[in-house]
Design a protein around this nucleic acid. Structure first.
Lengths: 179, 179
DNA sequence: TCAGCTTCATCAAACATTTGATCATCTGGG
DNA sequence: CCCAGATGATCAAATGTTTGATGAAGCTGA
């Protein structure tokens, strides 16, 4: 690629994917442009949704997106071992360990040693955690609904189907998973 | 929601979305379950793709996912103002500022004051940055290709279309954007 | 039994991100 | 001309994440 290629006059968040895919195709004939477009678009869409939900719902309440995910899992599935919480909320055990310090300090959940295995941690929401999660989730779900309305019901189902198929394919491809 | 609901015996990363959606529907009749399913699935799929790419491609080379995004943008679009870089790579100006410290320290890019506006920063790849990005991108794109193969070509196009429609709808919904 | 291996959790250091504040520079209206 | 407000960048503090190391507890087979 030439070092001195000038960027187009109007390069914005919205035009970048098209620009990048076309440019990469010109410069690198061997590039898989459709894979590049898929991953770029997937990331941008998710990043927008997450940023909007976190900044409009969770941060103003003193919560974070990862903290919400943990409290949400505990709310739905009840007390459970920390290892399970980490797995279902999609984070490493080390990341959860750090996150628990904040959530415990804020009085939203408690950690206790499990009785059957003294290595394991048992997590449960405190009364304060129970009191808070319902209201936060309602606001969160209202915001989710606003996003979902961009698609027709059939399109939403198809999007979910395609995303699930993408995830399922990864196991075949031996993708790297979290510890 | 009852405080003492026991979690199902087999609650895993893969079964959690179905479990959560059904349980939320039972407990909260007013929930928009399809929106909930869409956002949960979108996040999980993206998180898997990003984690796999970052841990298998970028971290082993001493790079990070956000760092790659910035270098990738500079590689494709050429030298540009930091403000533009932040916008097209989807990060806040403050986040970019911190990220630039690392990238500059590692000798991958340089920042200089712009001539026409002494507040603005002009970013450009160093020779070392140019030398590195091509190889990293090729490996990155090969990995993207493996993910993309989970879907049929027509499904990939449909996924991209739906994600773009989702993003486009957000502007109508007055979603919160980054600074 | 117990030594070695595995598993659970935490720690440490480096990094990226957020919000809100601050400083420097530019720009436009009186 | 010049001051007020807008804009670009950075900083500070708090948070969450990663990888690799460490310590504690459980398990297994000779």
């Amino acid at each position: 690629m030439t070092h001195n290629t000038a960027p187009p006059d109007e390069l914005t968040f919205w035009s970048f994917v098209d620009y990048a895919v076309h440019k990469a195709e010109r410069e690198l004939p061997s590039v898989n442009a459709e894979a590049m477009r898929m991953v770029l678009t997937l990331n941008r869409a998710t990043s927008m949704v997450v940023y909007d939900l976190e900044s409009s719902i969770h941060r103003p309440r003193g919560w974070t997106w990862p903290g919400f995910r943990v409290l949400f899992a505990l709310w739905l599935a009840g007390p459970m071992e920390a290892k399970t919480t980490a797995e279902i909320s999609g984070m490493s055990r080390a990341a959860l360990s750090a996150l628990l310090n904040t959530l415990e300090r804020d009085g939203l959940l408690s950690r206790e040693r499990a009785t059957h295995d003294r290595r394991a941690l048992q997590l449960s929401l405190t009364e304060e955690g129970y009191g808070a999660i319902l209201g936060v989730f309602r606001a969160h779900n209202r915001r989710e609904s606003a996003w979902a309305q961009a698609l027709e019901p059939e399109e939403r189902r198809e999007l979910v189907r395609l995303l699930n198929k993408l995830m399922a394919g990864s196991t075949d491809a031996k993708a790297k998973f979290r510890n």
